[in-house]
């Protein structure tokens, strides 16, 4: 991978995401207040926190769906700045799965998945469809390839969205509350897919409210509150022996409701 316009210090190749002192404002509202985080290759990080704490905003800054106003974000050696070439390069290597799936309703499942590989990666249609079917099989719904998103259940749609992201062959995956819009019995099918991916060497940043997933899959848990990281811990310590008062309160709220 070429590195251009890298303005920060030389990076360890193992550190695929480096955020330092990232600030973001929405008008007067200070949404992110100096987030610093380094993610190593293959790490699975789960970000927890109360609503409005800036979790989603933070991971959406990593592929520039939101613009940060201060601080540096370096993804795989490429600095995220106003250079559209850098942005395009980072978006090619970083995949994202959304809460609302955001499948393209006018395209079939197969067309949804092959759109970006054909137009961005410049693959041939045959190669793209081949890879798409591979990933559809992996997420367990190859028979839905020629249906439209409107004809699928929520869980199936989210698995298509995951297949769409994976077919682009990213190294880093961002999950923005992937199970929050799903019926309870569909959550498991999506979490199972995510669990598989975590064991396969993808670098994962996930915002989720699934505590079971966080406890069993995460290498590290980040707890955010009011736009800051207030605790960074192993799952073991995080759930049994949290350091921070705010974390204790949060865990109390969700574990004893």
């Amino acid at each position: 991978m070429t590195t251009m316009n890298v303005t920060t210090a030389p990076t360890n190749t193992e550190e695929v995401i480096i955020c330092s002192e990232v600030h973001k404002w929405y008008g007067d509202f200070h949404a992110l207040r100096g987030i610093s985080l380094t993610v190593k290759k293959g790490e699975v990080i789960v970000i927890l926190g109360p609503s409005g704490s800036g979790k989603s905003t933070f991971i959406r800054c990593i592929n520039r769906l939101e613009e940060h106003q201060q601080g540096d974000i370096v993804v795989e050696g490429t600095t995220l700045n106003y250079d559209v070439r850098n942005i395009a390069e980072i978006r090619r290597e970083v995949g994202m799965v959304f809460q609302q799936f955001n499948l393209f309703p006018h395209l079939t499942v197969l067309e949804n998945i092959t759109l970006a590989p054909i137009h961005v990666r410049k693959w041939t249609r045959d190669h793209a469809e081949d890879r798409a079917m591979h990933w559809l099989t992996r997420v367990g719904i190859p028979e839905q390839a020629n249906k439209y998103p409107g004809q699928l259940s929520g869980g199936q749609q989210q698995r298509v969205a995951i297949a769409r992201t994976l077919t682009m062959e990213p190294n880093i995956l961002l999950f923005d509350e992937p199970t929050s819009a799903l019926d309870p019995e569909m959550i498991k099918e999506v979490l199972d897919v995510m669990r598989d991916l975590a064991t396969e060497g993808y670098t994962i940043l996930a915002v989720t409210h699934e505590m079971g997933f966080a406890r069993t899959v995460a290498d590290r848990i980040i707890f955010m509150d009011a736009g800051q990281i207030v605790e960074e811990n192993t799952p073991e310590n995080f759930f049994t022996n949290p350091n921070n008062e705010r974390t204790k309160l949060f865990l109390n709220q969700i574990l004893h409701h």
Binding site: R91, H106, L115, V120
Partner: peptide, 30 residues
Amino acid sequence: VPKGQTEAARALGLSESQRLRLVVLPQAMR
């Protein structure tokens, strides 16, 4: 066309003109 469509297109690395041509306009046409 919902904002999520634009976000998904951007997250997949589509350029702004590809986003308009392949994702937004076909849905806007309806």
